[in-house]
C-alpha cells in the first residue's frame, strides 16, 4: 500500500503542470482562464510574469518529482534497512540558501524597470511638465465616475464632461489618468492594460499606459468595497484619436441637451 501514496504525491506536479498548460492553451473547458488580451504597448508585466513563472515552475516540478522519488525509493515496505539519522549536510544547506537568494536578488533587480515604468516614469510633455491627465476616474460605491476636463483642459470647470462607467481613450498615445475614490477603498483595475492601483479617498494618484488596439475592455474593482463590489464594472473603449474627439464632443452635447420635444407622430 505504501507506494500507492507516493503516486498520489506524483500527481501534484503532474496534474498541476497539466492544468496550467491546459489553461494557458485555452482548451475546453478552461477557456478564459489565462491572461486577457494585452492591448498596451508596454508588455513588461507579462514578460516578468512569464520569467518568474518559468523559474518557479521549474523549481516546482523538480521539487515535486524529488519528493515523489524519495517517497518511492525509501518506501517502508520495500526497504529492509533501518533509517539513518544524519546531522544534515552543511554544503547542501548553504547551496539551497544561496541559490534562491541569488535568484530573488536577480528578480528584484530585474523588475525595477517595470515598476519604474508603471509608477515613476510619468509621461512628460516637451516643456518638462508632467503630461496632464486625460480624465479623472473616481471610484464610488458601486460605480466609476469619469470626468473629462473639456475644451479648457482644466478639471472642475464649467465645461467638464461627467460620465458614469464609460471611459474612452485615444489609441497610440500615452494616456494619463488621475484616479481617486470618493467614499471607501476601491481598486482601479484594467485587466487588458495590466494596470491595477488601489484608490484611496482623498488621495490623488496617476496611472498611465499607451493603448495600441481598438476595442471595448473592462474596468473592474479589485478591492472589496461593499455589497456591490462584484458588480462594480465599467467599460473602457480604445479608439482612434479622431473617433475619440468626436465621441467627446457628442458626450458634451448630450450633457448640455437644452431642448426636448416628443417626436411627432408620422
Amino acid at each position: 500500500m505504501g507506494r500507492f501514496w507516493s503516486i498520489i504525491f506524483l500527481s501534484i506536479p503532474v496534474l498541476g503542470t497539466a492544468i496550467f498548460v491546459w489553461a494557458a492553451m485555452g482548451w475546453y473547458p478552461l477557456e478564459g482562464h489565462w491572461f486577457p488580451e494585452l492591448v498596451v504597448a508596454d508588455d513588461s508585466v507579462d514578460h516578468l510574469f512569464y520569467t518568474i513563472l518559468w523559474l518557479t515552475g521549474i523549481v516546482f516540478i523538480v521539487t515535486g518529482l524529488c519528493l515523489f522519488w524519495f517517497l518511492w525509493k525509501y518506501d517502508h515496505q520495500k526497504n529492509e534497512e533501518p533509517a539513518q539519522y544524519s546531522h544534515g549536510n552543511h554544503y547542501l544547506e548553504v547551496l539551497w540558501s544561496v541559490v534562491p537568494a541569488i535568484i530573488l536578488l536577480f528578480l528584484a533587480i530585474y523588475q525595477m524597470d517595470a515598476w519604474a515604468g508603471a509608477r515613476m516614469r510619468r509621461p512628460m510633455l516637451e516643456n518638462g511638465q508632467p503630461k496632464p491627465p486625460l480624465a479623472r476616474v473616481t471610484g464610488r460605491q458601486f460605480e466609476w465616475l469619469i470626468q473629462y476636463p473639456g475644451d479648457d483642459k482644466k478639471l472642475d470647470t464649467a465645461d467638464d464632461i461627467y460620465l458614469i462607467n464609460e471611459l474612452h481613450v485615444p489609441r497610440d498615445e500615452e494616456v494619463v489618468l488621475e484616479i481617486t475614490a470618493k467614499d471607501v477603498l476601491h481598486s482601479f483595475f484594467l485587466p487588458n492594460f495590466r494596470e491595477k492601483q488601489d484608490v484611496v479617498p482623498g488621495m490623488k494618484q496617476f496611472v498611465w499606459f499607451k493603448p495600441i488596439k481598438d476595442g471595448k475592455y473592462d474596468i473592474v474593482c479589485a478591492e472589496l468595497c461593499g455589497w456591490g463590489h462584484y458588480k462594480m464594472k465599467g467599460q473602457i473603449t480604445v479608439e482612434s484619436k479622431n473617433d475619440f474627439d468626436a465621441w467627446l464632443k457628442k458626450a458634451y452635447a448630450d450633457q448640455e441637451l437644452s431642448q426636448y420635444k416628443l417626436a411627432e407622430a408620422e
Partner: peptide
C-alpha cells in the same frame, strides 16, 4: 459655488520625480 463632499488637503504628487 461648488463644494465637494469631501475636501481633503491637496495631496502632493510624488510620481513626478525624475530619476
Amino acid at each position: 459655488p461648488y463644494d465637494s463632499l469631501s475636501q481633503p488637503p491637496e495631496h502632493v504628487q510624488e510620481n513626478v520625480r525624475v530619476r
